[in-house]
Amino acid sequence: MLRIKNLKCYYGRIMAVKGVSLSVKKGQIITLIGANGSGKSTLLEAICGLLPGWEGEITYEGFPLKGLDPPAVVKHGISLVPEGRLIFPPISVLDNLKLGAYTMYRKKQHAAVNQTLEKTLDLFPILKERAKQPAGTLSGGEQQMLAIGRALMSHPKLLLMDEPSMGLAPLIVEKIFQILETLRNDGITILLVEQNAQAALRIADYGYVFETGTVVLQGPASELLADQEVKRAYLGKDYGEFYDDK
């Protein structure tokens, strides 16, 4: 569905992604894990058209995404849930969701948008309760749900998620990840960038491990979860525990 070949991204003169290749299969959750600053978010921004001037090749269902601006990418059916959620705080929850359907109004009728709105609110009942509240008054978890809901409003086939667990309590993270599984079962493909490697690998089908702008390891999620090296570096097992096991 999504194929990335030898992608190189720059911030000024700094190369943040150094020739990454990966592919996302339809109907799967693919996760990119790795430490801060390893280039995961940069890669997502390149896909969305938010980061111009990358080199390499990104194709979505055979269609090259090079040179497309963010609205065009959204119209292709790719939607981003940005890092830090980036909801619009003073605007009501409902209007935040409607903004997610910004590109849909011209193509479809208002009725169709309202239908999507209903569906999204059914998925997140808490948002329905708070529909009229300014989005900034929501709790962190609710804001994350709003960000996901907003992304779903444009009928994406591919959902790009940037650190959905950031700053959330473990229980809420679990809830969010359950929602991601539901979405996958509904046929939405998800590219999930996470620092919480354990949670991400548990729901993912396939994973890539990033380190300073390159992919150092990849494989089926279950294998990565069991991999000693991944355990040591990303799953919070320290050396002592690691060697004691032996």
Binding site: C48, L50, P71, L80, L86, F88, D95, L99, Y105
Partner: peptide
């Protein structure tokens, strides 16, 4: 209208606004 919503979205965060498809 949706344009008005989009304007306020730009006010709150240009990056987020373009992420939802606002030009």
């Amino acid at each position: 209208s949706r344009i008005g919503r989009a304007l306020r979205a730009i006010h709150d965060g240009e990056k987020a606004a373009s992420a939802v498809g606002v030009d």
